Amino acid sequence: MKIVVTGSLGNISKPLTQLLVSKGHSVTVVSTNPERKAEIENLGAQPAIGTMEDVDFLSETFKGADIVYAMEALNAGCFFDHNVDFIAANTQIGKNYKEAFERSGVKRIVHLSSIGAHMSQGNGILAFHHNVESILKELPEDVSIKFMRPVAFYYNMYAFIPDIKAQGKIIQNYGGDQKEPWVSPLDIAEVIAEEIEKPFNGREIRYIASEEIAPNEIAGILGEAIGNNELKWEIIPDEQMLDNLIHTGMNPQTAKGFIEMNAAMNNGTLSEDYYAHQPALGKIKVKDFAKEFAITYHQ
């Protein structure tokens, strides 16, 4: 099949491209970076260089594709750009996709959404996923869409490193012994590759997770991996966490979105729909990720 993969060679799109090429599909990878062309070609895929803001480019790239894997992504550093409305910018990309799908005639879409997309409010920075799902659902009924809803990504834990190095602990406005779902991008890529080859039937939702584990357990595993068996996970009030994020230079609006998302994780509302449609767990566990975390930590 002819498949278009958005997201350049990111944490999900690169392993997804490798899987699809290995299965014999013709893959085009969308990237904003011309310097990625050679690397994309070396994977056995075709590069398409352009932006998610350019509807003409998207429409032309999607034309003739059997399936498009679509995800929203802003430039690195967007969390700290005080001129970016994170939710609005990502929602606009969703609108661009919708127009490009209509103009190109694509009938099968796999869309990367998120846990929390079932909530129209109270989910913080994840609100754009709800917005984009709603926008794509406006496409004609003969367009089949699989909404992939992964949970918290393992690599988000890299954000813990500054606090661990400075204060010897993980500091968040959620935590404790309540298990929460986490996921490896490699497991996400496996599921998406699987869904691409399965029949499409209207509008479907699939959650993706690798392990359900409590924050205090995560602290123990990461601590052991980096050689700090005393590592603890400390919960601080929302206001204090917000001040910490703003102090690092984060856009205050985006920082508030993170706080609200974490609070929804803490009170369980973020995971309600996930547990109502609980998936089989993937292969890669926190102990596997902890080896990579330790390498990055000690660099």
Rank of each mutant, 00 (worst) to 15 (best):
F200A: 00
L136I: 10
H277K: 11
A214P: 00
T28A: 04
G10Y: 05
N42I: 11
D81V: 13
N267G: 05
I221N: 04
L19M: 12
S144A: 15
I192T: 09
P150F: 02
L245Q: 07
S59Y: 04
V183G: 01
A209L: 06
G268W: 04
H130C: 10
S271E: 13
I235G: 04
Y207I: 01
P150D: 02
H130S: 13
Y297D: 02
K285H: 05
N244R: 15
A48S: 13
S134D: 14
S134T: 15
V27G: 01
A88C: 13
E138G: 08
A70P: 03
E53Q: 12
L270M: 13
P185I: 12
E217H: 12
T61I: 03
D238S: 14
P162C: 11
Y174Q: 02
T91P: 01
I67P: 08
N173C: 10
E239N: 12
K107R: 15
Q46P: 02
T17D: 04
M119I: 08
V151K: 04
S210P: 01
V29G: 04
I170M: 10
G7K: 04
L281K: 09
K23A: 15
V55Q: 06
I164C: 02
S134E: 14
K2P: 06
K198L: 11
D66L: 00
N267Q: 12
N266W: 03
A70H: 06
E224G: 14
K146C: 05
K95M: 11
G282S: 10
A280E: 14
L139E: 01
G124S: 08
Y154H: 01
N262G: 13
Y97Q: 10
E230F: 10
A255D: 06
Y154R: 00
Y155M: 06
A166N: 14
